[in-house]
């Protein structure tokens, strides 16, 4: 390489080449030393964002074939062993249902009344005139607070002594006028037609709510407490079945817009790991369900 260059040099020393060389050289020299580190940084930062992947719009799902799945009785035997010595009124069975769904699609959200209720000490507030027919219905169905102005006043003073709030459709205007959205909204207590808490017939709604529980999909998973720790396998089976039926119904109602499928059902409890259910009540090696009926 050295010889051709030395040969070419005398020929190619034209005005153009010389000028281009002379303009290039000082530039390189000027920036070389101080810019050394900054150039390194710049190149690395430039190459990284070029590799950016397309964001996925569904939740990642794993193949369940490799995981161990349990029959209900087996899972309950393990869970009861994990919950040994705990206070049975504070520990609960939980069900987690994983869906195959879009990340940004509509979510499943509803409430239902399980055949064997998990929590019974719910305080319900009904916004309707206390002396009206709806108000009386609500009281007889088990609402703890019934009224209009009195309740608005209490809430505005910051006294919120209820866990659910229902509004009769005739009282909705008054409620909106009272401007309680800023107080009740953050707690999720503000009645609205979207959540199904503005109703015409108060009685049945309250009755459903007393033993009922709400569920909603968050990040592709629906979680709900489905039983007390002292439930027998048969009771748990009924509860789980009715919950799954309600869920399937909700999903089918959404079906015209999106597709949601149930991917995995996991039973766990407050102090136990999650057991993936295989949909069976009893496996071939399971113990007799009668053994699990006793107190914990």
């Amino acid at each position: 390489m050295a010889t051709p260059r030395s040969l070419a040099a005398p020929f190619s020393v034209t005005r153009l080449a010389a000028s281009s060389l002379s303009t290039l050289r000082p530039e390189v020299c000027r920036f070389a030393t101080p810019a050394y580190q900054t150039i390194r940084c710049a190149t690395t930062s430039k190459t990284q964002p070029a590799k950016k992947k397309k964001a996925r719009n569904t939740f990642r799902q794993y193949d369940l074939k490799k995981t161990e799945q349990f029959a209900l009785v087996d899972a309950m035997q393990y869970i009861r062993a994990f919950e040994v010595g705990r206070n049975p009124s504070s520990s609960k069975y939980e069900l987690h249902v994983r869906l195959r769904t879009l990340k940004n699609g509509p979510v499943v959200r509803n409430r239902l009344r399980l055949p064997h209720s998990v929590k019974t000490d719910l305080r319900i507030c009904v916004i309707a005139p206390a002396d009206s027919k709806a108000g009386q219905e609500a009281r007889s169905a088990g609402a703890t607070l019934v009224g209009e102005e009195e309740i608005f006043k209490q809430v505005q003073e910051g006294v919120i002594e209820f866990d659910r709030c229902i509004c009769h459709i005739d009282s909705l205007q008054k409620l909106n006028k009272a401007g309680l959205g800023r107080l009740l909204g953050p707690k999720g207590l503000m009645p609205s037609t979207k959540t199904g808490t503005v109703v015409t017939n108060v009685g049945p709604t309250v009755r459903n709510m007393v033993g009922g529980s709400e569920y909603r999909e968050r990040l592709g998973v629906i979680r709900m407490a489905v039983g007390q720790l002292g439930f027998t396998p048969a009771e748990m089976q009924e509860n789980i079945k009715s919950f799954m039926d309600a869920l399937k119904k909700d999903v089918s109602q959404l079906q015209d817009r999106v597709s949601k499928e149930i991917h995995e059902v996991v039973l766990s409890s407050t102090n136990a790991p999650g057991f993936t259910l295989n949909g069976e009540f009893k496996g071939p090696n399971s113990i007799s369900p009668a053994l699990l009926t006793g107190p914990l």
Partner: peptide, 10 residues
């Protein structure tokens, strides 16, 4: 089992 006759204890 000591209490098969009892369907539920809750």
């Amino acid at each position: 089992s000591s209490n098969t006759s009892v369907p539920s204890l809750h």
